[in-house]
Amino acid sequence: MVQRGSKVRILRPESYWFQDVGTVASVDQSGIKYPVIVRFEKVNYSGINTNNFAEDELVEVEA
């Protein structure tokens, strides 16, 4: 279970941040499909630095 402030590695192959490390900004408990919002240092092609992920697409590298 990841929690706010954890450092996580992204396992979603189609993601711009695949294999990159980001910080968990928040975790939604309402039961949505992609409840974990992760914030990154670098921006993607659209200038965005956050994205939603499912918990099984993340691996915690640092608490």
Rank of each mutant, 00 (worst) to 15 (best):
M1N: 12
M1H: 14
M1T: 14
M1Q: 13
M1A: 13
M1V: 11
V2I: 15
V2L: 15
V2H: 07
V2K: 04
V2T: 04
Q3G: 08
Q3T: 11
Q3H: 11
Q3A: 10
Q3R: 14
R4M: 12
R4C: 13
R4H: 07
R4N: 08
G5T: 02
S6T: 13
S6G: 04
S6K: 08
S6D: 10
S6F: 06
K7Y: 09
K7H: 08
K7C: 14
K7Q: 08
K7V: 10
K7W: 08
K7D: 05
K7G: 05
V8S: 00
V8K: 06
V8P: 02
V8Y: 02
R9W: 05
R9Y: 08
R9T: 07
R9M: 11
R9K: 11
R9N: 06
I10S: 00
I10V: 13
I10M: 01
I10N: 02
I10H: 03
I10F: 04
L11A: 03
L11K: 04
L11S: 04
L11I: 10
L11D: 05
L11G: 02
L11H: 04
L11Y: 05
R12P: 08
R12M: 04
R12L: 05
R12A: 07
P13W: 09
P13V: 14
P13R: 13
P13K: 13
P13L: 10
P13F: 10
E14S: 14
E14N: 12
E14K: 08
S15A: 04
S15I: 04
S15V: 03
S15L: 04
S15E: 03
Y16T: 03
Y16H: 05
Y16S: 02
Y16G: 01
Y16C: 05
Y16V: 04
Y16M: 03
Y16D: 05
Y16L: 03
W17F: 02
W17N: 01
W17Q: 00
W17G: 01
W17H: 02
F18K: 00
F18M: 01
Q19S: 07
Q19E: 08
Q19D: 10
Q19A: 07
D20A: 10
D20M: 13
D20F: 10
D20Y: 09
D20V: 09
D20L: 12
D20C: 14
V21N: 00
V21W: 03
V21M: 04
V21S: 01
V21D: 03
V21C: 09
G22K: 03
G22P: 04
G22I: 08
T23V: 13
T23R: 04
T23F: 07
T23G: 02
V24M: 02
V24D: 01
A25K: 09
A25M: 15
A25N: 05
A25V: 15
A25P: 01
A25S: 10
A25H: 11
A25E: 15
S26W: 14
S26H: 14
S26Y: 15
S26L: 10
V27A: 03
V27Q: 01
V27L: 07
V27T: 03
V27N: 02
V27E: 02
V27R: 04
D28F: 06
D28E: 09
D28I: 09
D28H: 05
D28G: 07
D28R: 05
D28N: 08
D28V: 08
Q29R: 14
Q29T: 14
Q29P: 13
Q29S: 11
Q29K: 13
S30V: 04
S30K: 06
S30P: 04
G31D: 12
G31Q: 10
G31S: 08
G31K: 09
G31F: 09
G31E: 10
G31C: 14
I32F: 05
I32E: 09
I32P: 07
I32V: 13
K33L: 11
K33G: 06
K33T: 08
K33D: 09
K33P: 14
Y34N: 06
Y34V: 03
Y34K: 07
P35I: 10
P35M: 10
P35K: 10
P35W: 11
I37F: 12
I37C: 15
I37W: 15
V38G: 00
V38M: 00
V38E: 00
V38N: 00
V38H: 00
V38T: 00
V38A: 00
R39V: 14
R39Q: 12
R39A: 09
R39K: 13
R39H: 09
R39D: 02
R39F: 12
R39M: 13
F40R: 00
F40M: 00
E41A: 10
E41D: 12
E41N: 10
K42I: 07
K42P: 01
K42F: 08
K42V: 07
V43M: 12
V43S: 14
V43D: 07
V43K: 13
V43L: 10
V43T: 12
V43W: 10
V43P: 15
N44K: 05
N44S: 09
N44T: 07
N44C: 10
N44R: 02
Y45W: 13
Y45T: 14
Y45L: 15
Y45S: 15
Y45K: 15
S46Y: 14
S46D: 15
S46W: 14
S46M: 15
S46L: 15
G47K: 03
G47E: 03
G47W: 05
G47H: 03
G47V: 02
I48N: 12
I48Y: 11
I48R: 10
N49T: 06
N49G: 06
N49I: 05
N49A: 07
N49R: 08
T50C: 15
T50E: 12
T50I: 11
T50N: 04
T50D: 04
N51G: 15
N51Y: 12
N51W: 15
N52P: 07
N52W: 10
N52H: 11
N52S: 14
F53D: 02
F53Y: 07
F53I: 01
F53K: 04
F53N: 03
F53P: 02
A54W: 04
A54N: 09
A54T: 05
E55H: 15
E55K: 09
E55Y: 15
E55L: 15
E55P: 14
D56R: 07
E57R: 01
E57L: 01
L58Y: 03
L58W: 02
L58E: 01
L58F: 06
L58N: 02
L58D: 04
L58T: 02
L58H: 01
V59T: 08
V59N: 07
V59A: 12
V59R: 08
V59Q: 14
E60D: 05
E60P: 12
E60C: 14
E60Y: 10
E60A: 12
E60R: 11
V61I: 10
V61G: 03
V61L: 09
V61N: 05
E62A: 11
E62N: 11
E62T: 12
A63C: 13
A63H: 12
A63P: 13
A63R: 12
A63N: 12
